[in-house]
Amino acid sequence: MVEICALASGSNGNCYYIGNQKDAILVDAGISRRQILERMNRVRLDPFKVRAIFISHEHRDHFRGVRVLSKHLNIPVYMTAPTYENSWTPDRPSQYRRFVPGDIVDVGEMKVHTFSKQHDAADPCSFRIEQGGINVGVMTDIGKPCDNVIRHFSECHAVFLESNYDEDMLWSGPYPWHLKNRVASEHGHLSNHQAFELLENHRTDSLEVVYLSHLSAENNRPDIALEAFKDLSAACSVRLTNRYAPSEIYQIKNEMVAR
């Protein structure tokens, strides 16, 4: 069995939990140590099961709390060398471990598949976590679904998938023109429509649940995001994450995957 939970998801901070009965990892730590521990306690997740933190890129909404949390839990932090070198120095953890995109990192019984993606960062990566035939993807901050994203997405039983903006809200909204172009570029973020197309065209029958993640506070709304995916609601469970609170814990059981 694998348990997953979005502890935070949005431009103010991101942190995703994936674990089994003995071990767990976090992907990103973009809110404070205190907030991460409080939210884990709220949904009764044991922080001392966490064996490692994986960082997708150096932007502070993914990196902010990693140094203090890593020290508190006495666990390593995995990231690429360019991510480390381009991060804000005071946030850098002492227990830094380097990976190269494409590496598979073993954490207990879990295998963390690392892969490159398109985003406006030094060396952005996403992750597919595999354990006992169960695959969970953490795929946010993606400008365009490249071949790496598509390949790993198609193996997932559960995925935290970016659905950052509604195109009408973005182009008619308050952002300055250069920021609108950045968000919508091939190195920006996925729109509701782009995320829907990825799901529609590349999901398999084994995909159980999709958590719409990293929703923009200015350029999206939860109801609009869910509406964009309504035609696929019979194929898999489509759920929301929250920037201010943890999601419910979702359990993926091996016997369900084996069917």
Rank of each mutant, 00 (worst) to 15 (best):
V105P: 01
M110E: 12
D103M: 02
Y84F: 14
D91R: 10
P47W: 00
T89A: 12
D120L: 14
H119R: 04
A81Q: 08
P47G: 10
V77L: 05
T80I: 10
V136R: 07
V136C: 13
I53H: 05
R51N: 11
R42H: 12
D103T: 04
D103E: 07
R42A: 15
G132I: 01
P124T: 04
P90D: 10
N86F: 01
Q118I: 07
D103G: 03
R64P: 00
G133I: 00
V68Y: 02
R97V: 04
S126K: 00
D141F: 02
S70P: 14
A52T: 11
D91M: 14
R64T: 06
K117L: 09
N74L: 02
G143D: 15
D141T: 13
P93I: 06
E58F: 01
V136S: 09
D46G: 08
S87Y: 04
R128N: 13
P47M: 06
K144A: 09
A121G: 12
I75T: 13
L45C: 10
K117C: 15
Q95I: 04
V138H: 06
I75N: 08
A52E: 12
N74E: 14
G65L: 09
W88C: 09
M110Y: 03
I129M: 00
D141R: 06
F48G: 05
A81H: 03
K144D: 14
P101N: 13
N135E: 09
V107Y: 02
P124L: 03
I53E: 04
I75A: 07
K71N: 12
N74P: 05
R98A: 02
R67Y: 01
P124M: 04
T140R: 05
F115H: 02
D91F: 06
Y96T: 05
T114E: 06
Y78A: 02
G137T: 10
V66Y: 03
F48E: 15
G137L: 08
D123Q: 05
I142N: 15
H119F: 14
I129V: 15
H62F: 07
N74D: 15
H57P: 04
A81Y: 03
N86K: 11
E85A: 11
M139F: 06
M110D: 13
D123I: 00
P124S: 05
A52K: 02
H113I: 14
R98I: 01
I53F: 03
A52P: 06
R42E: 15
